[in-house]
Each structure stands twice: as C-alpha cells, then as structure tokens.
C-alpha cells in the first residue's frame, strides 16, 4: 500500500513567485499567531497531544470509503482537527501534516507550501471551528449538521483559493479552473463532510469529555464565529460569482491593483519588476527579485520577533 497524493496539493512550478511569497507571508503571520496562542494557553501535555494528532490526521487521510465508479470519499481533516483540538492547535497540526507531505512525499511543493498550508490548513480550520462554535450549546443534531456544512465549505474554500492562486499565477484560466475545481470538490467535500460528521458523532458518543466547548474565552469564541462566518460567506458569494462572471472578478482584481497587468496577460504578474535606474536588463530583474524576497523575509522576521517578545 503506497501513499497516494491528495488533489489539493499544488506542486512547485504551478504558482508564480509573487503569489507563492504572498501566500507564505500570510501563512507565516497566522502560524505566528497560532504559536503564541498555543504557547500561552495550553499546558505541557499539549506537545505530545499535537504531535500524535498530526500523525492521526495523516493516517486518517488514508481512511476511505467507496462511493461509486471507482471513486472514493476521504478526509482532509482541517475542520475536524480544529473542532477537536481548538483552532490554533488545529492549524499547527495541519501545518505539520502538510509540511511532512511536501518534504517526505513531495506531495505539494516547497516554495508553494505557504499556499498549500493556507488553503488546506488555515482556512479549513477557521471555517470548521468558526461555524462549529456558532452553534455551541445547541442540540447534537444541530451541531453535527453544522459540522457537516462546515466541513463541506472548508473543502470548497480550499478549492476556491487554489483556483484563485492558479489564476493569479497565470497557470489556469479563471472561467475554466473555477467551475472545474469547485465542481470536483463539491463531491470531494461531501466525503469530507460525511466522515467528519460520523467521526465527531462517534467521539461525542464515546468520550464527550474530550470535545468540551473549548478553552476559548467568550470573546475569542465570538471572534472565531465571526471569522468563520466571514470566510464562509466569501466562499458562498464568490464561488458562483467567479464561475458565472469571471470577467467581473478579473475587473475587481484589476481595480484593487492586484493585477497590475492587462486582461490579456495575467501571467506577467511575475517578471514585471525592474529596478528603475538599471533599465530593463536581466540583472535588474534578478536584483528586483532578490530585493523583493529580502524585504518579505525581513518583514516576516520582524513580525516573528514581535510575537515572540509579546508571548
């Protein structure tokens, strides 16, 4: 039995350097938060717990069930991890899982790992936990229903983000990649939803003590509900919009200045940097790239320092 790669893991080469670096920056900031929160909030028992849970998610991704015609449903686990471990710990666990999949199995690239973590680990956890918290105190049926919806949405959000990143990198055409990715993942999401719901039902039944209402404060929990709600809403609104009116999305991106290039060549997002006084030479482009990477690196280090100092 061999390791089989999952569909959302983007390999290196498919995202432009700009998109990759921006995704890394977002991911590092969120992970930085997650680390400072988990360090503060949780006891020493948390280290082996998160470690084994990461192995659990990894192994649970291999559990599948036959659906029809040779296809099978299986688990990504972002929502489940966030619900059973809490959002921050869930994010760290998913980060470790995705990192090992990339490092050990080349399932997903290294430069694009930031994007993969963002799509499959961070957004999924936010949606899963946020929606789950929104029905805290409700009946088990309500909770499990919402968990199912959250799990489905988390996969859709991952697929949507992946599509957008591919499009911004000039790798795919928006009007094709969005409906294709969302269509496929609407089905994959169903598998995710079913396994997540049944797994959680099983856990609630046998060890209800493990799924407390969480250690989050009322305020933090409200924030999560808010965050999860917003992201879900974006997915719900953006997906049909993007599939029905890709030109519209392109216009918006252009108006926001994200796409500094014309409709015809979104792929040129990358090599458009030049250092003014050097003119359009090879050296200038390289220099610009190096400077860009350095700037991002310095920002990341500064943020990490700031967080360490605070915690």
């Amino acid at each position: 039995m061999l390791y089989t790669p999952a569909p959302l893991h983007i390999p290196d080469g498919f995202l432009s350097i700009l998109v990759s670096v921006v995704c890394w920056a977002i991911t590092i900031i969120v992970i930085g938060f997650a680390i400072s929160k988990t360090n503060k909030a949780l006891g020493e028992k948390q280290i082996p717990l998160m470690g084994v849970m990461a192995a659990f998610i990894f192994a649970a991704q291999m559990i599948n069930f036959p659906v029809a015609g040779g296809t099978s449903g299986h688990l990504l686990g972002g929502a489940l991890a966030a619900i059973v471990l809490g959002p921050w710990a869930g994010m760290l666990v998913m980060t470790a899982v995705i990192a090992v999949q990339a490092l050990l199995f080349q399932d997903g690239g290294l430069l694009v790992m930031g994007a993969n973590i963002l799509n499959m680990g961070l957004v999924t956890a936010a949606i899963g936990y946020g929606l789950y918290r929104s029905v805290a105190g409700q009946s088990k049926t309500v909770k499990l229903t919402v968990v199912g919806i959250a799990a489905w949405l988390s996969v859709m959000a991952g697929a949507l983000l992946t599509s957008l990143q591919l499009w911004l990198s000039g790798t795919s055409q928006l009007e094709i990649v969005i409906p294709a990715m969302l269509g496929v993942h609407a089905l994959i999401g169903l598998g995710e939803a079913l396994i997540t719901v049944f797994a959680l039902a099983f856990i609630i039944q046998t060890r209800p003590d493990l799924i407390g209402e969480g250690s989050e404060s009322a305020k933090a929990s409200r924030n999560w509900v808010f965050a999860g709600g917003i992201v879900s809403l974006l997915v719900v609104l953006l997906s049909p919009l993007a599939s029905a009116d890709p030109d519209g999305l392109e216009r918006v991106a252009k108006d926001l200045g994200f796409l500094s290039v014309g409709q015809d060549a979104p792929y040129q997002v990358i090599p458009d940097y030049t250092v003014p006084f050097l003119g359009e030479t090879a050296l200038s482009t390289i220099l610009a790239g190096v400077v860009g990477i350095l700037v991002v690196g310095v920002i990341i280090v500064l943020i990490a320092r700031g967080m360490k100092a605070k915690s």
Partner: peptide
Amino acid sequence: RAKVAGNMAGQLFL
C-alpha cells in the same frame, strides 16, 4: 459506508 469510515476515524482519534 461513510458511517463505517467515520467511525473508524473516530476510533483512531480516541
């Protein structure tokens, strides 16, 4: 079948 798989995941979690 999904329920069986879900229970397996739950059991593995515990």
